[in-house]
Write a protein that binds this DNA or RNA. Structure first.
Lengths: 239, 239
DNA sequence: GAGTGGTCTAGACCACGCA
DNA sequence: GCGTGGTCTAGACCACTCT
């Protein structure tokens, strides 16, 4: 007997309704939602039930709640978009701001591995972005970013791209990145790594493979980063 | 005016009380807490307030709640202790079970970096554990674990140590590891790495530096792992 | 059927931000 | 002073587990 759950609590239904509204853009990033009272009245449930749904949304960082003011659709501001999923810090533990250098953008047919990772149809078009990131003015990370063109029409014409791509995704294309699945390996610098990051071939590199997942569960971005960790570390707290 | 918060909500006070009881061992791992009703009566608050505190504890994985049964003090079972903070998977994404080989345990005075990382007094004694971990029978990870002897009296006499150390820490010493701060870098295999992991010197290694933090906030363990990531990846989901 | 946690409601009051 | 979210209470009923 492996049945689907026979029943969804009311607050989960309210939660689903709110997520849909946000995904649709009925309330835009940065805007405030109706008050708990107003939502409760509109949906014919008690305020406590709305509250429970909103609290879940806040935990998942889809909304922000401010006592005395209201509940706001969370926004990937430039600042936060840069750091929410960016785990690299200088060795003292300080976040250094990455800047871009040497950006190239082109569109082409998706390769087999890209089709698989991003759940694309064969023959789909993608945009490939290559850019080197500087920390304290020195090249430290090389990123290759693969985007399905269908989800980001015309993004290859928007050069130069902003520092914080996730903010662009959210505001211009409505794709709200809410989770990132990362896989890390140690590798050796190849010739092209050495050139881009001013290293010797054979130097150790941290290779990071990230799939960015949007609010609706779609895999929206594949990003591979190759990082010189002689002056940086990837810091994460597990709990 | 940088004042301390003027007031702590009731449910936070209840939360603090419960954490203290668990830390003290008043309820032992695996045992059930009193029911919400009973706690509410004992503490003179409403059941809803107790519930809110228990829900926080459940989110932080200090307790587990089972509908129809009760609320239980979370337990680092062998199984879960192994995997809760273990992010290495085989490339298909499957968790492989590590086994131990070549374990050495000795006690000595703490070195400067250990004193700093574990907040020790100078001259404090530590236990150093070195062991190589096998995945699918092949050496893949070398761990060096530093423990303050004061927190783990006699642990150096307990060889061979179990596979899941965190379970031992919790049940035998009352140190409940609830968070791990990890820092990752790519490095090259040195001669001793090469010997232990059957690699060539100069092969890439993932170096993981972990501080294990206990329930009371104490830094209880410093663990450095050096991993051959040719057949493994470090997988983590950011959100 | 008894006891547990889970959901839902209604209402009172508190803390905060703003005009 | 008003409206917002935050806390706290009391009580009803539901879903689950075990006896």
């Amino acid at each position: 007997m492996d049945e689907a759950p026979h029943y969804r609590p009311l607050y989960r239904q309210v939660y689903g309704f709110l997520v849909k509204q946000i995904a649709d853009g009925s309330w835009r990033p940065g805007e405030s939602l109706p008050s708990e009272q107003a939502l409760a009245a509109r949906l014919n449930v008690s305020q406590g039930t709305v509250r429970k749904a909103l609290d879940s949304l806040a935990v998942e960082k889809l909304v922000e709640r401010r006592q005395g003011k209201g509940t706001y659709v969370a926004e990937h501001t430039q600042e936060r978009a840069l750091f929410r999923f960016f785990r690299l810090t200088t060795i003292g533990g300080v976040r250094a701001i990455p800047t871009s250098a040497g950006e190239t953008v082109r569109r082409r047919e998706a390769r087999r591995d890209e089709i698989q990772r991003l759940n694309l149809a064969s023959g789909a078009l993608v945009v490939e972005i290559n850019r080197t990131r500087l920390i304290d003015g020195k090249p430290a990370i090389h990123e290759r970013i693969i985007l399905p063109l269908a989800l980001f029409p015309g993004i290859d014409k928007r050069t130069p791209l902003p520092n914080a791509l996730y903010s662009l995704y959210q505001h211009e294309y409505g794709h709200n990145i809410v989770a990132a699945h990362e896989e890390l390996r140690a590798e050796l610098a190849r010739k092209e790594d050495a050139r881009r990051l001013k290293l010797k071939p054979g130097a150790p590199l941290l290779h990071i493979d990230r799939i960015g997942v949007a609010l609706d569960g779609m895999r929206v971005e594949w990003r591979t980063s190759r990082c010189d960790t002689s002056h940086l570390v990837y810091a994460v707290t597990l709990s």
